[in-house]
Design a binder for these strands. Structure first.
Lengths: 245, 245
DNA sequence: CGCTGCGTTGAAATTGCTCAATTCAAGTGG
DNA sequence: CCACTTGAATTGAGCAATTTCAACGCAGCG
Protein backbone atom coordinates (compact mmCIF):
# COMPACT_ATOMS: atom_id res chain seq x y z
CA UNK A 1 0.00 0.00 0.00
CA UNK A 2 0.97 3.57 -0.52
CA UNK A 3 3.18 4.34 2.48
CA UNK A 4 2.02 7.93 2.68
CA UNK A 5 -1.58 6.91 3.14
CA UNK A 6 -0.53 4.48 5.80
CA UNK A 7 1.34 7.18 7.63
CA UNK A 8 -1.34 9.85 7.42
CA UNK A 9 -3.95 7.40 8.63
CA UNK A 10 -2.12 7.22 11.91
CA UNK A 11 -3.24 10.78 12.32
CA UNK A 12 -6.63 11.17 10.71
CA UNK A 13 -9.28 9.21 8.90
CA UNK A 14 -9.15 9.70 5.18
CA UNK A 15 -12.14 9.37 2.89
CA UNK A 16 -12.01 7.09 -0.12
CA UNK A 17 -11.83 10.17 -2.28
CA UNK A 18 -8.81 11.37 -0.31
CA UNK A 19 -7.13 8.05 -0.75
CA UNK A 20 -7.82 7.99 -4.46
CA UNK A 21 -6.33 11.43 -4.75
CA UNK A 22 -3.26 10.42 -2.79
CA UNK A 23 -2.92 7.25 -4.78
CA UNK A 24 -3.17 9.20 -7.99
CA UNK A 25 -0.53 11.66 -6.76
CA UNK A 26 1.76 8.80 -5.81
CA UNK A 27 1.70 7.25 -9.24
CA UNK A 28 1.44 10.20 -11.59
CA UNK A 29 5.11 10.84 -12.22
CA UNK A 30 7.66 8.35 -10.95
CA UNK A 31 11.38 9.03 -11.03
CA UNK A 32 14.25 6.71 -10.07
CA UNK A 33 17.52 7.80 -8.55
CA UNK A 34 20.80 6.06 -7.93
CA UNK A 35 22.69 6.08 -4.66
CA UNK A 36 24.42 9.37 -3.83
CA UNK A 37 22.49 11.59 -6.16
CA UNK A 38 20.86 14.89 -5.40
CA UNK A 39 17.10 14.99 -5.79
CA UNK A 40 17.30 18.74 -5.32
CA UNK A 41 20.43 20.78 -4.79
CA UNK A 42 20.84 23.73 -2.49
CA UNK A 43 19.88 26.96 -4.20
CA UNK A 44 17.59 25.31 -6.73
CA UNK A 45 14.03 26.48 -7.18
CA UNK A 46 11.85 23.44 -6.67
CA UNK A 47 8.71 22.94 -8.69
CA UNK A 48 7.48 19.65 -7.32
CA UNK A 49 7.00 18.02 -3.99
CA UNK A 50 8.81 14.70 -3.71
CA UNK A 51 7.07 11.73 -2.17
CA UNK A 52 9.45 8.92 -1.34
CA UNK A 53 8.13 5.54 -2.36
CA UNK A 54 11.23 3.43 -1.79
CA UNK A 55 14.74 3.95 -0.46
CA UNK A 56 16.33 6.36 1.98
CA UNK A 57 16.92 10.06 1.42
CA UNK A 58 18.62 12.69 3.55
CA UNK A 59 18.25 16.41 3.91
CA UNK A 60 21.67 18.02 4.26
CA UNK A 61 23.81 21.08 3.98
CA UNK A 62 27.30 20.96 2.54
CA UNK A 63 29.82 23.23 4.24
CA UNK A 64 32.65 25.09 2.61
CA UNK A 65 35.30 23.24 4.63
CA UNK A 66 34.20 19.87 3.29
CA UNK A 67 32.09 18.85 6.26
CA UNK A 68 28.41 18.28 5.92
CA UNK A 69 25.48 18.11 8.25
CA UNK A 70 22.63 15.76 7.64
CA UNK A 71 19.45 17.22 9.11
CA UNK A 72 16.90 14.49 8.46
CA UNK A 73 16.53 11.00 7.25
CA UNK A 74 13.53 10.54 4.99
CA UNK A 75 11.95 7.13 4.63
CA UNK A 76 9.32 5.71 2.32
CA UNK A 77 6.07 7.60 2.88
CA UNK A 78 7.84 10.82 3.73
CA UNK A 79 7.17 14.00 1.80
CA UNK A 80 9.90 16.50 1.08
CA UNK A 81 9.50 20.17 0.66
CA UNK A 82 5.94 21.02 1.20
CA UNK A 83 7.51 24.46 1.29
CA UNK A 84 7.71 24.87 -2.46
CA UNK A 85 4.69 27.08 -2.36
CA UNK A 86 6.31 29.60 -0.14
CA UNK A 87 10.07 29.58 -0.05
CA UNK A 88 11.58 30.27 -3.39
CA UNK A 89 14.99 28.70 -3.07
CA UNK A 90 16.13 25.58 -1.33
CA UNK A 91 18.37 26.44 1.60
CA UNK A 92 19.52 22.84 1.75
CA UNK A 93 19.80 19.81 -0.48
CA UNK A 94 18.08 16.46 -0.70
CA UNK A 95 20.29 13.53 -1.54
CA UNK A 96 19.79 9.80 -1.84
CA UNK A 97 21.46 7.32 0.49
CA UNK A 98 20.29 4.27 -1.45
CA UNK A 99 18.63 3.79 -4.82
CA UNK A 100 15.37 5.66 -4.49
CA UNK A 101 11.96 5.81 -6.14
CA UNK A 102 10.18 9.12 -5.92
CA UNK A 103 6.76 10.36 -6.98
CA UNK A 104 6.86 13.96 -8.18
CA UNK A 105 3.76 15.89 -7.22
CA UNK A 106 3.34 19.11 -9.11
CA UNK A 107 2.40 22.34 -7.49
CA UNK A 108 -0.98 22.30 -9.21
CA UNK A 109 -1.82 18.78 -8.22
CA UNK A 110 -0.86 19.52 -4.65
CA UNK A 111 -3.08 22.59 -4.68
CA UNK A 112 -5.92 20.52 -5.98
CA UNK A 113 -5.41 18.06 -3.17
CA UNK A 114 -5.42 20.78 -0.56
CA UNK A 115 -8.61 22.25 -1.97
CA UNK A 116 -10.31 18.89 -2.12
CA UNK A 117 -10.53 18.17 1.56
CA UNK A 118 -9.53 20.05 4.69
CA UNK A 119 -8.74 16.76 6.34
CA UNK A 120 -6.00 16.17 3.86
CA UNK A 121 -4.66 19.65 4.42
CA UNK A 122 -4.60 18.97 8.08
CA UNK A 123 -2.85 15.69 7.61
CA UNK A 124 -0.13 17.32 5.54
CA UNK A 125 0.30 20.07 8.10
CA UNK A 126 0.71 17.38 10.69
CA UNK A 127 3.49 15.89 8.62
CA UNK A 128 5.26 19.25 8.58
CA UNK A 129 4.88 19.75 12.32
CA UNK A 130 6.15 16.32 13.21
CA UNK A 131 9.16 16.91 11.01
CA UNK A 132 9.80 20.09 12.95
CA UNK A 133 9.47 18.23 16.23
CA UNK A 134 12.11 15.77 15.06
CA UNK A 135 14.42 18.63 14.18
CA UNK A 136 14.03 19.99 17.67
CA UNK A 137 14.91 16.69 19.22
CA UNK A 138 17.99 16.43 17.01
CA UNK A 139 19.05 19.79 18.34
CA UNK A 140 18.89 18.41 21.87
CA UNK A 141 20.67 15.28 20.78
CA UNK A 142 23.57 17.03 19.11
CA UNK A 143 23.74 19.87 21.56
CA UNK A 144 23.55 18.12 24.87
CA UNK A 145 24.12 14.39 24.69
CA UNK A 146 27.34 12.37 24.79
CA UNK A 147 28.46 10.42 21.76
CA UNK A 148 27.11 7.18 23.18
CA UNK A 149 23.72 8.65 23.95
CA UNK A 150 23.63 10.40 20.62
CA UNK A 151 24.25 7.33 18.55
CA UNK A 152 21.87 5.26 20.63
CA UNK A 153 19.21 7.94 20.40
CA UNK A 154 19.30 8.15 16.65
CA UNK A 155 19.14 4.39 16.34
CA UNK A 156 16.10 4.38 18.60
CA UNK A 157 14.45 7.05 16.50
CA UNK A 158 14.99 5.21 13.27
CA UNK A 159 13.68 2.05 14.86
CA UNK A 160 10.54 3.66 16.27
CA UNK A 161 9.74 5.50 13.07
CA UNK A 162 9.92 2.32 11.11
CA UNK A 163 7.95 0.43 13.69
CA UNK A 164 5.17 2.98 13.32
CA UNK A 165 4.76 2.09 9.67
CA UNK A 166 5.11 -1.65 10.13
CA UNK A 167 8.68 -1.99 9.03
CA UNK A 168 10.04 -3.70 12.13
CA UNK A 169 10.03 -7.48 12.38
CA UNK A 170 11.82 -9.60 14.98
CA UNK A 171 13.37 -6.53 16.53
CA UNK A 172 15.03 -5.77 13.22
CA UNK A 173 14.68 -2.89 10.81
CA UNK A 174 16.49 -1.50 7.81
CA UNK A 175 19.41 0.84 8.26
CA UNK A 176 20.97 1.09 4.83
CA UNK A 177 23.46 3.86 5.51
CA UNK A 178 27.17 4.04 6.21
CA UNK A 179 28.94 5.03 9.40
CA UNK A 180 30.14 8.19 7.69
CA UNK A 181 26.56 9.20 7.01
CA UNK A 182 25.60 8.44 10.58
CA UNK A 183 28.48 10.64 11.71
CA UNK A 184 27.33 13.44 9.40
CA UNK A 185 23.92 13.28 11.00
CA UNK A 186 25.22 13.27 14.56
CA UNK A 187 27.86 15.96 14.39
CA UNK A 188 30.57 13.42 15.22
CA UNK A 189 33.58 12.11 13.36
CA UNK A 190 33.26 8.83 11.56
CA UNK A 191 36.04 7.35 13.64
CA UNK A 192 34.32 8.17 16.86
CA UNK A 193 31.01 6.84 15.61
CA UNK A 194 32.77 3.62 14.82
CA UNK A 195 34.14 3.30 18.34
CA UNK A 196 30.80 4.20 19.82
CA UNK A 197 29.04 1.59 17.75
CA UNK A 198 31.53 -0.96 18.95
CA UNK A 199 30.73 -0.03 22.51
CA UNK A 200 27.02 -0.54 21.86
CA UNK A 201 27.78 -3.78 20.06
CA UNK A 202 29.91 -5.33 22.78
CA UNK A 203 27.29 -4.36 25.36
CA UNK A 204 24.88 -6.43 23.31
CA UNK A 205 22.62 -3.43 22.80
CA UNK A 206 22.68 -3.48 19.02
CA UNK A 207 23.62 -5.71 16.14
CA UNK A 208 24.00 -3.87 12.87
CA UNK A 209 25.12 -5.67 9.75
CA UNK A 210 24.10 -6.09 6.18
CA UNK A 211 22.17 -2.84 6.24
CA UNK A 212 19.99 -4.24 8.98
CA UNK A 213 19.76 -3.06 12.55
CA UNK A 214 18.71 -5.40 15.33
CA UNK A 215 17.90 -4.09 18.79
CA UNK A 216 17.43 -7.11 21.04
CA UNK A 217 16.21 -5.05 23.99
CA UNK A 218 14.71 -1.74 22.93
CA UNK A 219 14.02 -0.69 26.51
CA UNK A 220 17.66 -1.07 27.39
CA UNK A 221 18.88 0.93 24.41
CA UNK A 222 16.29 3.62 25.05
CA UNK A 223 17.55 3.92 28.58
CA UNK A 224 21.13 4.38 27.45
CA UNK A 225 19.97 6.96 24.95
CA UNK A 226 17.61 8.68 27.35
CA UNK A 227 15.13 8.23 24.54
CA UNK A 228 11.51 9.25 24.96
CA UNK A 229 9.39 8.72 21.84
CA UNK A 230 6.87 11.45 22.67
CA UNK A 231 8.42 13.88 20.23
CA UNK A 232 7.59 11.60 17.33
CA UNK A 233 3.88 12.13 18.04
CA UNK A 234 3.24 8.60 16.93
CA UNK A 235 0.19 8.03 19.06
CA UNK A 236 -3.01 8.39 17.14
CA UNK A 237 -4.03 11.97 17.73
CA UNK A 238 -6.73 12.29 15.14
CA UNK A 239 -9.91 11.27 16.96
CA UNK A 240 -10.40 14.78 18.15
CA UNK A 241 -11.10 15.84 14.59
CA UNK A 242 -13.50 13.16 13.56
CA UNK A 243 -16.47 15.09 14.82
CA UNK A 244 -15.43 18.25 13.06
CA UNK A 245 -15.04 16.57 9.70
CA UNK B 1 2.92 49.18 15.02
CA UNK B 2 2.00 45.56 15.56
CA UNK B 3 5.29 43.74 15.00
CA UNK B 4 3.59 40.71 13.51
CA UNK B 5 2.03 42.75 10.75
CA UNK B 6 5.37 44.31 10.06
CA UNK B 7 6.98 40.94 9.80
CA UNK B 8 4.35 39.31 7.62
CA UNK B 9 4.39 42.24 5.27
CA UNK B 10 7.94 41.36 4.39
CA UNK B 11 6.44 38.33 2.81
CA UNK B 12 3.06 39.26 1.38
CA UNK B 13 0.74 42.19 0.97
CA UNK B 14 -2.04 42.24 3.50
CA UNK B 15 -5.41 43.81 2.92
CA UNK B 16 -6.79 46.36 5.36
CA UNK B 17 -9.22 43.72 6.52
CA UNK B 18 -6.32 41.34 7.21
CA UNK B 19 -4.56 43.99 9.19
CA UNK B 20 -7.64 44.79 11.21
CA UNK B 21 -8.00 41.13 11.99
CA UNK B 22 -4.39 40.84 13.04
CA UNK B 23 -4.63 43.98 15.07
CA UNK B 24 -7.72 42.66 16.78
CA UNK B 25 -5.99 39.36 17.53
CA UNK B 26 -3.00 41.17 18.96
CA UNK B 27 -5.04 43.12 21.46
CA UNK B 28 -7.82 40.75 22.42
CA UNK B 29 -6.24 39.08 25.40
CA UNK B 30 -2.97 40.43 26.75
CA UNK B 31 -0.94 38.61 29.40
CA UNK B 32 2.22 39.75 31.15
CA UNK B 33 4.99 37.47 32.34
CA UNK B 34 8.00 37.98 34.56
CA UNK B 35 11.51 36.88 33.72
CA UNK B 36 12.15 33.13 33.94
CA UNK B 37 8.57 32.00 33.79
CA UNK B 38 7.08 29.31 31.61
CA UNK B 39 4.47 30.47 29.15
CA UNK B 40 3.75 26.82 28.44
CA UNK B 41 5.43 23.85 30.06
CA UNK B 42 6.41 20.62 28.37
CA UNK B 43 3.55 18.15 28.40
CA UNK B 44 0.84 20.78 28.65
CA UNK B 45 -2.05 20.87 26.21
CA UNK B 46 -2.07 24.33 24.74
CA UNK B 47 -5.30 26.09 23.88
CA UNK B 48 -4.02 29.40 22.54
CA UNK B 49 -1.38 30.61 20.18
CA UNK B 50 0.99 33.10 21.78
CA UNK B 51 1.98 36.22 19.91
CA UNK B 52 4.91 37.98 21.49
CA UNK B 53 4.43 41.70 21.70
CA UNK B 54 7.41 42.63 23.87
CA UNK B 55 10.37 40.84 25.44
CA UNK B 56 12.34 37.72 24.61
CA UNK B 57 11.15 34.14 24.88
CA UNK B 58 12.89 30.84 24.29
CA UNK B 59 11.77 27.42 23.24
CA UNK B 60 13.60 24.79 25.26
CA UNK B 61 13.75 21.26 26.56
CA UNK B 62 14.89 20.47 30.05
CA UNK B 63 16.98 17.32 30.41
CA UNK B 64 16.93 14.89 33.28
CA UNK B 65 20.61 15.50 34.09
CA UNK B 66 20.03 19.20 34.69
CA UNK B 67 21.21 20.43 31.32
CA UNK B 68 18.87 22.16 28.97
CA UNK B 69 18.80 22.91 25.29
CA UNK B 70 17.34 26.12 23.99
CA UNK B 71 15.99 25.57 20.50
CA UNK B 72 14.82 29.02 19.46
CA UNK B 73 14.82 32.58 20.52
CA UNK B 74 11.47 34.27 19.94
CA UNK B 75 11.34 38.01 19.53
CA UNK B 76 8.50 40.51 19.39
CA UNK B 77 6.33 39.71 16.39
CA UNK B 78 7.01 36.00 16.62
CA UNK B 79 4.19 33.50 16.98
CA UNK B 80 4.56 30.39 19.08
CA UNK B 81 2.85 27.12 18.55
CA UNK B 82 0.78 27.41 15.50
CA UNK B 83 0.71 23.68 16.07
CA UNK B 84 -2.00 23.75 18.71
CA UNK B 85 -4.49 22.58 16.13
CA UNK B 86 -2.66 19.42 15.46
CA UNK B 87 -0.29 18.23 18.13
CA UNK B 88 -2.00 17.57 21.36
CA UNK B 89 0.82 17.90 23.84
CA UNK B 90 3.76 20.24 23.92
CA UNK B 91 6.98 18.30 23.45
CA UNK B 92 8.94 21.30 24.69
CA UNK B 93 8.45 24.37 26.84
CA UNK B 94 8.29 28.08 26.22
CA UNK B 95 9.96 30.26 28.81
CA UNK B 96 10.61 33.95 29.19
CA UNK B 97 14.10 35.40 29.20
CA UNK B 98 12.93 38.91 30.10
CA UNK B 99 9.64 40.36 31.22
CA UNK B 100 7.29 39.59 28.36
CA UNK B 101 3.98 40.77 26.98
CA UNK B 102 1.99 38.19 25.06
CA UNK B 103 -1.26 38.27 23.14
CA UNK B 104 -3.19 35.04 23.50
CA UNK B 105 -5.01 34.07 20.32
CA UNK B 106 -7.67 31.46 20.84
CA UNK B 107 -8.11 28.51 18.60
CA UNK B 108 -11.42 29.87 17.33
CA UNK B 109 -10.10 33.29 16.55
CA UNK B 110 -7.15 31.80 14.74
CA UNK B 111 -9.50 29.62 12.73
CA UNK B 112 -11.53 32.66 11.82
CA UNK B 113 -8.39 34.41 10.66
CA UNK B 114 -7.38 31.49 8.51
CA UNK B 115 -10.83 31.34 6.94
CA UNK B 116 -10.90 35.04 6.28
CA UNK B 117 -8.15 35.25 3.72
CA UNK B 118 -5.88 32.71 2.08
CA UNK B 119 -3.15 35.32 2.02
CA UNK B 120 -3.09 35.36 5.76
CA UNK B 121 -2.97 31.59 5.87
CA UNK B 122 -0.06 31.67 3.53
CA UNK B 123 1.70 34.27 5.57
CA UNK B 124 1.36 32.19 8.70
CA UNK B 125 2.62 29.11 6.90
CA UNK B 126 5.59 31.11 5.83
CA UNK B 127 6.26 31.93 9.46
CA UNK B 128 6.24 28.21 10.27
CA UNK B 129 8.56 27.34 7.41
CA UNK B 130 11.07 30.04 8.22
CA UNK B 131 11.15 28.83 11.80
CA UNK B 132 11.93 25.37 10.50
CA UNK B 133 14.69 26.77 8.31
CA UNK B 134 16.23 28.40 11.36
CA UNK B 135 16.11 25.12 13.22
CA UNK B 136 17.97 23.47 10.37
CA UNK B 137 20.67 26.08 10.43
CA UNK B 138 21.06 25.65 14.18
CA UNK B 139 21.61 21.98 13.57
CA UNK B 140 24.48 22.84 11.28
CA UNK B 141 25.77 25.37 13.74
CA UNK B 142 25.81 23.04 16.71
CA UNK B 143 26.79 19.97 14.77
CA UNK B 144 29.62 21.22 12.64
CA UNK B 145 31.02 24.56 13.70
CA UNK B 146 33.70 25.42 16.24
CA UNK B 147 32.81 27.33 19.38
CA UNK B 148 34.05 30.59 17.91
CA UNK B 149 32.04 30.19 14.73
CA UNK B 150 29.04 29.04 16.69
CA UNK B 151 28.88 32.01 18.97
CA UNK B 152 29.56 34.42 16.14
CA UNK B 153 26.93 32.77 13.99
CA UNK B 154 24.20 33.07 16.58
CA UNK B 155 25.07 36.69 17.21
CA UNK B 156 24.82 37.36 13.49
CA UNK B 157 21.45 35.66 13.34
CA UNK B 158 20.04 37.67 16.19
CA UNK B 159 21.38 40.83 14.61
CA UNK B 160 19.95 40.12 11.16
CA UNK B 161 16.58 39.08 12.48
CA UNK B 162 16.26 42.29 14.40
CA UNK B 163 17.51 44.33 11.50
CA UNK B 164 14.74 42.87 9.38
CA UNK B 165 12.13 44.34 11.67
CA UNK B 166 13.82 47.68 12.17
CA UNK B 167 15.36 47.00 15.54
CA UNK B 168 18.97 47.75 14.67
CA UNK B 169 20.34 51.26 15.06
CA UNK B 170 23.99 52.34 14.87
CA UNK B 171 25.09 48.75 14.51
CA UNK B 172 23.45 47.96 17.83
CA UNK B 173 20.61 45.71 18.80
CA UNK B 174 19.13 44.25 21.94
CA UNK B 175 20.51 41.06 23.40
CA UNK B 176 18.90 40.80 26.82
CA UNK B 177 20.05 37.30 27.75
CA UNK B 178 22.78 35.83 29.94
CA UNK B 179 25.86 33.92 28.91
CA UNK B 180 24.38 30.80 30.47
CA UNK B 181 21.36 31.09 28.21
CA UNK B 182 23.60 31.61 25.21
CA UNK B 183 25.48 28.48 26.19
CA UNK B 184 22.23 26.53 26.51
CA UNK B 185 21.34 27.57 23.00
CA UNK B 186 24.70 26.67 21.52
CA UNK B 187 25.36 23.34 23.15
CA UNK B 188 28.45 24.72 24.88
CA UNK B 189 29.40 25.20 28.51
CA UNK B 190 28.92 28.64 29.98
CA UNK B 191 32.61 28.85 30.78
CA UNK B 192 33.62 28.23 27.22
CA UNK B 193 31.08 30.70 25.90
CA UNK B 194 32.60 33.26 28.20
CA UNK B 195 36.09 32.66 26.84
CA UNK B 196 34.82 32.68 23.28
CA UNK B 197 33.04 35.97 23.79
CA UNK B 198 36.26 37.41 25.16
CA UNK B 199 38.04 36.30 22.03
CA UNK B 200 35.45 38.05 19.88
CA UNK B 201 35.63 41.10 22.10
CA UNK B 202 39.39 41.50 22.02
CA UNK B 203 39.33 41.07 18.24
CA UNK B 204 37.02 44.06 18.19
CA UNK B 205 34.32 42.04 16.48
CA UNK B 206 31.65 42.57 19.10
CA UNK B 207 30.85 44.77 22.03
CA UNK B 208 28.15 43.38 24.27
CA UNK B 209 27.16 45.14 27.46
CA UNK B 210 24.06 46.35 29.19
CA UNK B 211 21.91 43.87 27.30
CA UNK B 212 22.98 45.53 24.06
CA UNK B 213 25.04 43.99 21.30
CA UNK B 214 27.14 46.15 19.00
CA UNK B 215 28.72 44.70 15.90
CA UNK B 216 31.02 47.36 14.45
CA UNK B 217 31.75 45.42 11.28
CA UNK B 218 29.03 42.95 10.44
CA UNK B 219 30.85 41.69 7.37
CA UNK B 220 33.85 40.76 9.45
CA UNK B 221 31.83 38.91 12.04
CA UNK B 222 29.83 37.12 9.36
CA UNK B 223 33.08 35.96 7.82
CA UNK B 224 34.33 34.54 11.11
CA UNK B 225 30.98 32.83 11.60
CA UNK B 226 30.73 31.61 8.01
CA UNK B 227 27.30 33.21 8.21
CA UNK B 228 25.07 33.34 5.16
CA UNK B 229 21.68 34.94 5.82
CA UNK B 230 19.88 33.07 3.05
CA UNK B 231 18.31 30.64 5.46
CA UNK B 232 16.40 33.44 7.16
CA UNK B 233 14.49 34.00 3.93
CA UNK B 234 14.39 37.69 4.69
CA UNK B 235 14.25 38.88 1.13
CA UNK B 236 10.80 39.81 0.03
CA UNK B 237 9.46 36.69 -1.61
CA UNK B 238 5.82 37.61 -1.88
CA UNK B 239 5.51 39.33 -5.24
CA UNK B 240 4.97 36.02 -6.91
CA UNK B 241 1.65 35.72 -5.14
CA UNK B 242 0.24 39.14 -5.82
CA UNK B 243 -1.25 38.08 -9.10
CA UNK B 244 -2.82 34.99 -7.62
CA UNK B 245 -4.53 36.84 -4.82
C1' DC C 1 26.31 44.54 55.42
C1' DG C 2 25.67 40.47 53.33
C1' DC C 3 23.12 38.31 49.80
C1' DT C 4 22.55 36.82 45.03
C1' DG C 5 23.11 36.53 40.16
C1' DC C 6 26.23 36.99 36.69
C1' DG C 7 30.63 37.24 34.64
C1' DT C 8 35.52 35.95 34.73
C1' DT C 9 39.66 33.20 35.26
C1' DG C 10 42.99 29.15 36.06
C1' DA C 11 44.14 24.38 36.03
C1' DA C 12 43.19 19.67 35.38
C1' DA C 13 40.45 16.14 33.29
C1' DT C 14 37.95 14.36 29.47
C1' DT C 15 35.95 13.81 25.28
C1' DG C 16 36.19 13.52 20.73
C1' DC C 17 39.16 14.67 16.59
C1' DT C 18 42.83 14.00 13.14
C1' DC C 19 46.04 11.37 10.84
C1' DA C 20 47.62 7.24 9.17
C1' DA C 21 47.40 2.34 8.63
C1' DT C 22 45.21 -1.95 8.21
C1' DT C 23 41.46 -5.21 7.48
C1' DC C 24 37.51 -6.88 5.28
C1' DA C 25 33.93 -7.87 1.80
C1' DA C 26 32.29 -7.50 -2.57
C1' DG C 27 32.81 -6.75 -7.02
C1' DT C 28 35.31 -6.74 -11.81
C1' DG C 29 38.08 -7.87 -15.49
C1' DG C 30 41.43 -10.92 -17.33
C1' DC D 1 39.82 -18.72 -10.38
C1' DC D 2 42.87 -15.08 -9.23
C1' DA D 3 44.74 -10.37 -9.05
C1' DC D 4 43.18 -5.91 -8.52
C1' DT D 5 40.22 -2.27 -7.14
C1' DT D 6 37.04 0.00 -4.35
C1' DG D 7 34.19 1.38 -0.49
C1' DA D 8 33.53 0.69 4.13
C1' DA D 9 34.81 -0.55 8.78
C1' DT D 10 38.34 -0.79 12.25
C1' DT D 11 42.27 0.33 15.13
C1' DG D 12 46.21 2.98 17.41
C1' DA D 13 48.51 7.14 18.82
C1' DG D 14 48.89 11.84 19.59
C1' DC D 15 46.57 16.09 19.86
C1' DA D 16 43.11 19.83 20.24
C1' DA D 17 38.90 21.56 21.81
C1' DT D 18 35.85 21.79 25.37
C1' DT D 19 34.23 20.57 29.97
C1' DT D 20 34.47 20.45 34.86
C1' DC D 21 35.67 22.09 39.13
C1' DA D 22 36.76 25.64 42.03
C1' DA D 23 37.57 30.36 43.02
C1' DC D 24 37.06 35.10 42.83
C1' DG D 25 35.16 39.81 41.42
C1' DC D 26 31.63 42.87 40.96
C1' DA D 27 27.21 45.22 40.87
C1' DG D 28 22.64 45.67 42.51
C1' DC D 29 19.58 45.29 46.32
C1' DG D 30 16.98 44.43 50.67
Amino acid sequence: MNPLIRKLERFTRLSDADKRLLQHAATARIVNYDTHQDIIAEGEEPTDVNLILAGWVCRYKQLADGGRQIMSFLLPGDLCDLNIFLLRRMDHALGTLTPVVVAKISRDLLQEMLNADPRLTRALWWEVLVTAAIHREWLVNIGRRTALERVAHLLCEVYFRQQAVGRVKDNRCELPITQVELADALGLSAVHVNRTLRELRVSGLIDWRDKTLAIPDVEALAQVARFDPDYLHLDFEGEQFDAAC
